[in-house]
Write a protein that binds this DNA or RNA. Structure first.
Length: 287
DNA sequence: CCCACGACCTGTGGGC
DNA sequence: TGCCCACAGGTCGTGG
């Protein structure tokens, strides 16, 4: 799935088409994604005007003039695609979800500007819901979320506090959205490499100087990834169909058995499994 | 409370 | 070529 940089890239691609637009048609093609759609989902969206699209963690948020906010999570394979000047199934239309199988297009929004925005999700780990805007912060989706890593409120003190006494690995701790919001498997691996921290280190045993390196590494890798339009491995594309290219800047992710690219490091990238997910790291410069 | 693990789905790529 | 298994960017629920 898209992690924070990919979701942010999708938001930036959708915003020019959706900010301030009215939804004139909403098509919901199945009763559920990961969870059932809320009751009368399409009817509650139809006719609504969207305010300014935002992002929190890996969620996209579209506030509506009905008092509700459309909340969308892309799961692993969720993709929003913009299709201008024709319906979602118009033959010959350019980038028909840019390679996505149309049988997995589950929601199609049409705006008063003649733009179709379709949601395609092969694995259906994503979901959409509607929450009263005034209650967003107290909703179960957002209540426990940690700080945005690119917000100044995310600081060494955040992790010093979260790591204290924690025996869980630093890898698993950073994947915990209650600690810091928006990181996923790729960017945790990349940030730990930049901070020269071994993914199996217990969070509680990481020192203050190391935490400072880690906070900087997280900020840097996310900022660079957003600037590159995210990472495209297989499914991910931005809303306008563009490929991200940050994957070319990976230093460890997906590079098992390749040489470590750190200056003056002669190590080799290895892969281990932690909590059922692959961790890539260099055992020589990450300690 | 903490943590590890299976479950949820479908597609793809590698090895044989 | 074809089949089968491992694995994939994320969470959520369960059970120890």
């Amino acid at each position: 799935m898209p992690e924070l940089p990919e979701v942010e890239t999708v938001r930036r691609g959708l915003a020019p088409h959706l900010d301030g637009a009215r939804l004139v048609e909403v098509e919901q093609r199945r009763p559920d994604l990961r969870f059932p759609f809320p009751d009368d989902f399409a009817a509650r969206l139809r006719g609504a005007r969207i305010g300014v699209l935002t992002r929190r963690a890996k969620y996209l948020l579209a506030p509506l003039d009905t008092g509700e906010t459309l909340v969308a999570h892309l799961g692993m394979t969720g993709r929003f695609t913009i299709e201008e000047g024709g319906g979602p199934d118009t033959p010959g239309l350019f980038h028909h979800a840019a390679g996505a199988d149309p049988k997995h297009t589950h929601v199609v929004l049409t705006t008063d500007r003649g733009v179709c925005v379709s949601y395609n999700d092969a694995r259906r780990f994503g979901y959409m819901t509607l929450i009263p805007t005034a209650q967003l912060g107290m909703s179960p989706y957002f209540k426990g979320l940690g700080p945005e890593p690119l917000d100044e409120r995310f600081a060494p003190a955040t992790l010093i506090h979260a790591f204290a006494g924690r025996r869980q690995s630093v890898k698993a701790t950073l994947l915990d959205q209650r600690v810091v919001a928006g990181l996923g498997n790729i960017y945790v691996c990349e940030a730990l490499h930049r901070a020269r921290l071994h993914p199996e280190r217990a969070a509680g045993e990481i020192g203050v100087a190391e935490i400072k390196r880690l906070v900087l590494a997280i900020r840097t890798v996310l900022s660079e990834a957003i600037a590159a339009g995210g990472s495209t491995l297989r499914d991910y594309r931005s809303a306008d169909g563009a490929l991200g290219y940050f994957q070319h800047a990976f230093k460890v992710y997906g590079r098992e058995d390749d040489p470590c690219v750190s200056p003056r490091c002669s190590g080799v990238v290895q892969r281990i499994v932690q909590g059922g997910r692959s961790s890539f790291f260099c055992g020589r410069c990450q300690r």
